[in-house]
Design a binder for these strands. Structure first.
Lengths: 343, 343
DNA sequence: CGGCAGGGGGTAACCGGTTACCATCACTCT
DNA sequence: AGAGTGATGGTAACCGGTTACCCCCTGCCG
């Protein structure tokens, strides 16, 4: 079909080695020769076959980013950051959606398809403690999420506990005492949901308060829809709340929507806060108080760790163990939804 | 490093052909032989090298989806749909972001990197009329967007003109007469911005009205931020509006945020409508009237056209010309932001 | 019992690059 | 002048699959 390196070589009357030297701009090529080759390339419209190159190089220059769902703004923003960080290192990112389903996450690790990429950045949701060994496949993997999987794999985490504690402290300082928790986590999973809940509870405890279990609004997914549904159930149960903490921003936004439908004013009647600082949080009505993890930092670090691991793997035999998890910075962002006084 | 097919063959005491027959479950393999091969595969932990397979097959099983920005909810949702449609056909999707920049879009078409995938679904923003020929590279391409690029390439479009007209008619029917237009398009580009504007103007004309140029709020990007900024400028200019039509939902949501900041009530003082029906539109306060294009249909059709084109390309020589553009269904979704009477 | 059909499986070429190894060649150095 | 040196570029093996082509063997038919 299209021209190959040998065609170019024949046309320029040189060897394939020389053509290869030119396209990879290897230094020792005489200018005149280079010209001839470039001319031949232009005439034939030659374009390199990357699959062939990848085969001989033994690498593809691609890494996989596995996230639960692209439609969730947090992950779309994360993907954007990771793509940027990867590009800076010459990698192309292949995005896979796991739906947060454990089996999909495991499949991805075991899958033959993954051999199309040089490494994997996995944002695990479904994996459970005990699944750790599945990660130790010798294939370069970096986890985005708490290192609760007892796996000897590199981790990049956000300060879930500290961030959630900061939010709760802020709400308590504003005088809120009956704080509803929107969202839940699978028992046994030690993911972001568990950790944020823990941070939240720690703050209450530190303030000498106890969390009323009736103030928990479980949500299956971390979506607007689920946040709204959970909040509806909570309010229907008749409990009184003066604040709601969504385990992430979309849950909080879904909750706000329901408060609005029920005629409750935010923040006057009920303060609301979330976690993630997705872009929508700044533009919602009212704008949403939340925790902003340094996403760019997370992405950069994850890609950097993965690149390192890939390099090592291709070097000697046994890759070293992942070091301690890297914890990204965060900041509490107070906005209208929890402003001290009604506006 | 890892085991190859030849290793498996040696281990099972068969030829590579037989191993290949087994892994590709070719019918004529004696059960006993198959067992031996499978056992060898298990023992060696063999995993096929996809790069090698791709090289001999001359295809990669991947297609590229090029969109402006993953952070824009519309495109995140579209990407999700495309990935689903592609998976149903055995393709993996590689997402590239163009930022809506013309040069990036052109680079993508010319790039050698694209040779890593079998085809391209491109959502062009920056390409101009006249750029058509650049698309005719013999490489399978399907365009998401109006066929204004005079290119002989397959197109899948949404009913931008009709959808926008429907929105405008709805606002007019609700008695709105000074309808601001939030968003703009590059002169000369005939993309979604231009077409939606056209549909909007058609409705006004049909109603015997003229659009006051002062009611246009240009926005550089189609983002929340840009929508807010544009609306701020519009309101600052002192013009009176009783409705705002955002050329897409995020522009409209950004606009709503500013109306709120200025103490204007939606829909009582100003009705608002958008285009795209992103998920956030259902949960905003108030919920947003918009046009819902059938995204799933668009994705399915685009992937299907591309798959067809890929199949043809590998068959005979010259691929046929793209047929007439496929126009996806749409529906006007009326919500609170333009409800007839204040709630 | 020879011949033939077709299932089962081996051999080796091929996909299109990279690169180890080697051969020239032009100079410079002693 | 002979040797050493580095630039230049050719040859062919190799990456790890797929597959065209061929051979062997078994079962069945005449």
């Amino acid at each position: 079909m299209s021209a190959t390196m040998r065609d170019v070589a024949r046309r320029a009357d040189v060897s394939v080695k020389t053509v290869s030297n030119v396209v990879n701009d290897f230094p020792h090529v005489r200018p005149a020769t280079r010209e001839r080759v470039l001319a031949a390339i232009a005439e034939l419209g030659y374009q390199m076959n990357f699959t062939a190159r990848n085969l001989s190089l033994g690498r593809t220059g691609m890494i996989t980013l596995a996230i639960p769902k692209l439609r969730l703004p947090y992950f779309a923003e994360l993907a954007d950051e990771v793509m940027g960080a990867a590009e800076a290192r010459g990698y192309t990112v292949l995005i896979e959606q796991t739906g947060g389903v454990r089996q999909r996450e495991i499949d991805l690790l075991a899958s033959e398809r993954r051999r199309m990429t040089d490494g994997l950045v996995l944002s695990p949701i479904g994996l459970r403690a005990g699944d750790g060994p599945r990660l130790e496949t010798g294939y370069p993997v970096v986890l985005l999420g708490e290192r609760s999987l007892d796996a000897r794999v590199d981790h990049v985490v956000m300060a879930n506990v500290a961030g959630a504690r900061a939010v709760a402290e802020h709400l308590l300082a504003a005088g809120r005492r009956r704080i509803g928790l929107v969202g839940s986590y699978e028992a046994g999973s030690e993911g972001a949901g568990y950790l944020r809940t823990r941070g939240f509870l720690e703050a209450l405890t530190a303030a000498g308060l106890e969390h009323d279990p009736a103030l928990t609004a479980p949500a299956e997914d971390w979506t607007l829809e689920a946040g709204a549904a959970a909040t509806r159930r909570l309010l229907d149960s008749g409990v009184q709340v003066d604040a709601l903490f969504g385990l992430n921003d979309v849950l909080a936004l879904g909750a706000m929507r329901v408060l609005f439908e029920r005629g409750l004013r935010v923040p006057d009647d009920v303060a609301v806060a979330g976690f993630d600082d997705i872009e929508e949080a700044r533009f919602s009505r009212p704008s949403l108080t939340t925790v902003r993890p340094d996403r760019a930092q997370i992405a950069r670090h994850a890609v950097s760790l993965l690149a390192e691991r890939i390099a090592v793997g291709s070097g000697d035999g046994v890759p070293p163990v992942g070091g301690p998890a890297f914890v990204a910075d965060y900041a509490l962002v107070v906005r209208e939804s929890s402003a001290p006084a009604g506006r």
